[in-house]
Amino acid sequence: MKCTKCGGKAVISVLQHHLGLCKEHYLEWVPGQVARAIQKYRMFAKTDRILAAVSGGKDSLSLWDILHRLGYQVDGLYICLGIDGGVNYSNESQRLSQQFAAQHGLTLHVVDIPQVYGESIPQIASRTFRGRGAPCSVCGLAKRHEMNRLARDLGYDVLVTGHNLDDEAAVLFSNTLRWAGGFLARQGPVLEADQPGLARKAKPLCRMYERDMTAYALLRGIEYIYDECPYALGATSIYYKELLNKLESDQPGAKLNFYLSFLQAKEGGLFAPQADPDRAQMHPCPSCGQSTTAEGLCSFCRMMGGES
């Protein structure tokens, strides 16, 4: 296969865009695509202060790399979850995030959950009803809460996460299987900060395939954590991603089309605000100030044992 741009030897095919690209042109193409998504969905501007949530994985480190290269002011936030799982997961992912920051002269904020709250994610999970079975629900809630808290406390204009198209398509697929109107109404490339205590959020990689981000990290030489979080094993999201990849293999572009046509349908009014009745009842949590639909304390503060 030849590079569509220069005719040299291609190192990767991007079937959903009918492209073959050499290393040089691939490393140029990816940031270009991300820049277009940032503009199209009006995510943020060069004057904004951006906080990137980094996990040490390929997507978030590549996102940080790309935004920095595109000339945005972007700092990192690493949340240490206290997960070992026999692969030293949290320590290793923190080390790789810190290494990336140091190599590029970037600022990384670190929040250590066990240090701040006295318990690791698996410990919180084993003590709470929410955590029965797997700690992922506890983990997701804690990460969301801490990202909001830090983005707001440190005065950032927008929080960005490394969600790629496969992440978004898997969530969309799962929400569609249940016709979860509220979730569908809220899913998108940007979440406005229209509720007290919540930061503005954007997903600049929402149109990039997970495969394309892996290739970017490899070709750019970004060292990322390859081992999965031990609790991800058997996650439904992985199952949905595999299903969608099966579809994609037979119909290149199917994943992208699924997500983009959803956004279009939403723009056209398919998911009216009434689909999301919870939103109308949001109020600030009396303890942390973040908006919640729960009565009284937000789910995070309740999980952590009342007033803090």
């Binding site: 296969m1 190192v11 095919s13 994985g57 997970e210 892996t214 290739a215 999965e228 996650a235 992985i238």
Partner: peptide, 25 residues
């Protein structure tokens, strides 16, 4: 250590390493 495309022909003795793309959680 180099990425190759799907149309590449495999020669005797080639060793391919697959980098898994999907991550979860």
């Amino acid at each position: 250590g180099e990425l190759i495309t799907e149309d590449e022909l495999l020669a005797p003795g080639d060793v391919l390493k697959l980098v898994m793309v999907i991550s979860g959680g």
